[in-house]
């Protein structure tokens, strides 16, 4: 009987505490809205290297749904691809062991919030360097140069931007540069945006679009997955991929840039490139 009463008391107090914590969190959030937008991101971003060394693990946001760059195999649970090999190279350089990594799934839409959250140390997820994004994050040097083209059914009449016609439906992912580019280059087509490329490809396969547009690098992976689809040869943009790092962390950016240079010089980069893309990188 006594125990019962005590339990009730504790439970009651716990609830009140929880509720007030929620209320407080709400207030704190509200007051930050006013000045916080421009805040001091530099302070928040610095020291990623120290953080990585302290936990003895590199946490990176990568894609899980992109053949050749970052793809999770449901059978083995492993994530593999070009981006993952870059992650491993960084881990090897910073921590001396390429296996001291933790991968987290990101999408085009979730990656910037996750980096700002501090959930991940860096984004290596086929992310194009743009002026808009530079306001939000810092980028390394270009680690992969891609260009936007189309993924279409084998027998499709679409061979490039010139074949875009009014009434065509082009699918892509929300928050991607590809969506902005296609709207600007082919204003007549209808652009449908999905949560990520896997959903967009599922929609394309389901006949919900005439073509899927994004960087050819990603499209090759999808075409490899499903031989009923092909990638149009011509590209209509240049998409330089960069590794995104918290704003203001010059130290970590330099480490990554030094490593990229090193890898290009000692041939390791070419090896990874050929392993996944099948050809040597263009010089």
């Amino acid at each position: 009987m006594k125990a019962n009463k005590l339990w009730k008391k504790v439970a009651g107090m716990g609830l009140v505490l929880m509720l007030s914590a929620t209320a407080l969190a709400g207030c704190g959030g509200g007051s930050k809205t006013e000045g916080g937008a421009q805040g001091t991101p530099a302070a928040a971003g610095a020291g990623t290297l120290a953080k990585i060394k302290e936990r003895d693990k590199l946490v990176v946001g990568v894609k899980y749904d992109l053949n050749l760059f970052g793809l999770k195999d449901p059978a083995t649970g492993n994530v593999e691809g070009f981006d993952i090999d870059i992650v491993k190279a960084i881990a090897k350089k910073v921590l001396g062991d390429e296996n001291k990594i933790e991968l987290k799934e990101v999408t085009s839409k979730t990656r910037i919030p996750m980096l700002k959250n501090g959930e991940i140390d860096a984004i290596i997820a086929t992310m194009t360097i743009t002026e808009d994004r530079k306001k939000e994050v810092d980028f390394s040097d270009v680690y992969f140069l891609a260009g936007q083209s189309f993924l279409v059914k084998k027998d499709s009449s679409i061979n490039g931007l010139k074949d875009m016609q009014k009434g065509m439906k082009i699918v892509t992912a929300k928050g991607s540069t590809s969506a902005k580019n296609i709207r600007a280059s082919a204003p007549d087509v209808e652009v449908l945006e999905f949560e990520n490329y896997a959903e967009a490809f599922t929609a394309l396969k389901a006949g919900q679009g005439d073509a899927l547009t994004t960087d050819n690098a990603l499209l090759y992976g999808m075409a490899k997955q499903d031989p009923n689809y092909r990638v149009t040869e011509e590209t209509f943009t240049e998409e330089p991929y960069g590794i995104a790092i918290s704003k203001g962390d010059a130290e970590f950016v330099k480490t990554v840039n030094d490593l990229l240079k090193e890898m290009k010089e000692n041939g390791e980069y070419d090896k990874i490139y050929e392993k996944w893309i099948g050809t040597k990188p263009k010089k």
Binding site: G28, G36, T110, P113, M114, E119
Partner: peptide, 14 residues
């Protein structure tokens, strides 16, 4: 909760 709260400093994972 996932996209907007981090903007005002409340951060959590998925």
């Amino acid at each position: 909760t996932y996209f907007a709260l981090p903007e005002v400093g409340i951060k959590m994972d998925k």
